[in-house]
Design a protein around this nucleic acid. Structure first.
Length: 491
RNA sequence: GCCCCCUUAGCUCAAUUGGCAGAGCAACUGACUCUUAAUCAGUAGGUUCUAGGUUCGAGUCCUAGAGGGGGCACCA
């Protein structure tokens, strides 16, 4: 029935000869910029009656009506665009009959444009004193409650459009995401990395340990997988002579949903020929620091109760040192590690000792890493795509960046020995199903390595998690505009 | 997939031990030319998530289901 009243007004707007769905509207200024022009308002000296006269710049704005205070022959309305809000003053005697008639048909959430003079009211509120109103779009449904807004998390995610309009800070948070992504591209582009677009439909879903989404191509009648990582195609490009290359794009993993996981998310992967994991650590720091700068945030970020200090260089600690420190057990003592794993309730039978060790690491160490901290030098048997240390093949040249217990980046010196790579693809990690292993045989990838891939460093960053950290968001759903939800039932 | 919690008007929320389903905002009618969540007077607004069950009587208790949140599991 709310809609019926709005539809009646829509017809009355038509009757005035105005299209209720609006037209092109030129030359309006962002409301944020209009607010910056406050200082152009000049107050003339007081007249004989002791009243002073204001003159301000003439401005044109457009946006959504989010609040209305009608007071007889006066209307105060708050107009909002994506840069902010400003008050409109519409006075019957000031705007004339036609504008006033139109103003009687305005509902909350309608989209309008206005020309007027920027001045201040008696109470000092920066206000556009409207001279001409433009009706741009009717809203047929009522907005959420004006004070509380939308608070139901389900409604906020399902109707993100309303969340953006009515929840404080949401638009700004997503604009920060845009700024972060733009900054990452700029940082890489400035260092002559080439952005490419790899395939998202893979016949072998490799490059990570994750369950893929299955799909099918009709004309070829073949099964396909949505990609779970960007890695293997980017490394093919290293073979092809792309010396600095990256992709920033969506990957899909058929796994559970949590405050840190969405089934589709955005990954950055960067590969640099003739680099190694040390060069990737420097690059990771620069990407993060530049991104914070792009959002005009300090290097110390508030995250919940805690503060994260992104001042470089980030701490760098070896996997084994951290393991010993947080468990009190010698990481080389396989029996003691296995005993600890058993006591934590992990199945150890038939598993490689490094797999067992890593389960303990994930349980006892990762959550405790407030960071930012680079964990370096992983056991090589859990790193099938990583180059081993020259003087110690049991250790892989890999790091993961942890912040607030969350893995944000993962990088390594890339394995480019085709024979070792093929062997690692063939010898599945003990105790792991093929589906769960990173080592999925990809003959074409091995063939590419045989043609010669230069030594290289490679880096992956989970963009959604990075945005969470940089914007102080507790859930990944706060930084993904349209997170996966079950379909809405028939109303 | 498992466990716990939530679902009442468009929105935000009440409803005692099982006893007439309510308020604020939004809407509608009216008053008001400097308001600030404007104010004041009045009107209207309900499949209490769905389907069963217990009961003289269910928003409330029981069973099943749906959607959401949190946790666990899964998970570079």
């Amino acid at each position: 029935m709310h809609e019926a009243a709005r539809r009646e007004k829509l017809e009355k707007i038509r009757a005035l000869g105005i299209d209720p769905w609006g037209t092109r509207f030129n030359d309006h200024m962002p409301i944020g910029s209009v607010r910056d022009r406050e200082r152009e308002i000049v107050t003339e000296s007081a007249d004989a009656e002791g009243r002073s006269e204001q003159h301000g710049p003439r401005v044109r704005v457009a946006g959504r009506l989010v609040l209305q205070r009608r007071k007889g022959k006066l209307i105060f309305a708050d107009l909002q665009d994506w840069t902010g809000k400003i008050q409109l003053f519409i006075g019957k005697n000031q705007v004339g009959e036609e504008n006033w008639e139109l103003a009687q048909l305005l509902d909350l959430s309608d989209i309008v444009g206005a020309d007027g003079e920027l001045k201040k009211t008696r109470t000092g509120e920066l206000t556009i004193f409207v001279e001409k109103l433009y009706f741009l779009t009717k809203s047929l449904l009522p907005p959420p409650e004006k004070h509380h807004g939308l608070t139901d998390p389900e409604l906020r995610q399902r109707m993100r459009y309303l969340d953006l309009v009515h929840t404080e800070g949401v638009t700004e948070r997503f604009l920060d995401r845009t700024r972060i992504v733009r900054s990452i591209r700029r940082t890489l582009d400035e260092q002559d990395f080439a952005e490419i677009e790899g395939p998202t439909l893979h016949s072998i879903a490799g490059g990570a340990a994750a369950r893929p989404f299955h799909t099918h191509h009709n004309a070829l009648d073949i099964p396909l997988f949505m990609r779970i990582a960007l890695e293997l195609h980017l490394k093919r490009l290293l073979v092809g002579g792309f010396e600095r290359v990256y992709e920033l794009g969506r990957v899909y993993r058929n796994e559970g949903i949590s405050p840190k996981h969405n089934p589709e998310f955005t990954m950055l992967e960067v590969y640099q020929a003739y680099g190694d994991y040390e060069s990737m650590m420097d690059l990771t720091e620069k990407i993060i620091i530049d991104a914070l700068g792009a959002c005009e945030r300090p290097l110390r970020v508030q995250w919940g109760e805690q503060e994260i200090d992104f001042n470089p260089p980030f701490a760098r600690r070896s996997y084994d040192d951290l393991f010993a420190e947080h468990t009190g057990i010698d990481p080389q003592d396989a029996a003691a590690v296995a005993a600890l794993a058993e006591s934590l309730g992990f199945e150890t039978a038939g598993k490689h000792q490094d797999v067992i060790k890593n389960e303990v690491f994930e349980e006892k160490v990762e959550d405790a890493l407030q960071g930012p901290i680079f964990v370096i030098d992983y056991p090589s048997s859990i790193c099938p795509l990583t180059k081993r240390k020259a003087n110690n093949p049991a250790i892989a040249e890999r790091f993961e960046l942890f912040v607030h217990g969350m893995e944000v980046a993962n990088a390594y010196t890339e394995l480019n020995d085709p024979d070792l790579q093929e062997e690692l693809f063939l010898t599945q990690l003990q105790g792991q199903k093929e589906e769960d292993s990173m080592a999925k045989m990809d003959h074409d990838f091995v063939r590419a390595l045989r043609h010669g891939m230069p030594p290289a460093g490679g880096l992956g960053i989970g963009i959604d998690r990075l945005v969470m950290l940089l914007t102080g968001s507790a859930s990944i759903r706060d930084v993904i505009l349209f997170p996966l939800l079950r379909p809405e039932g028939e109303p």
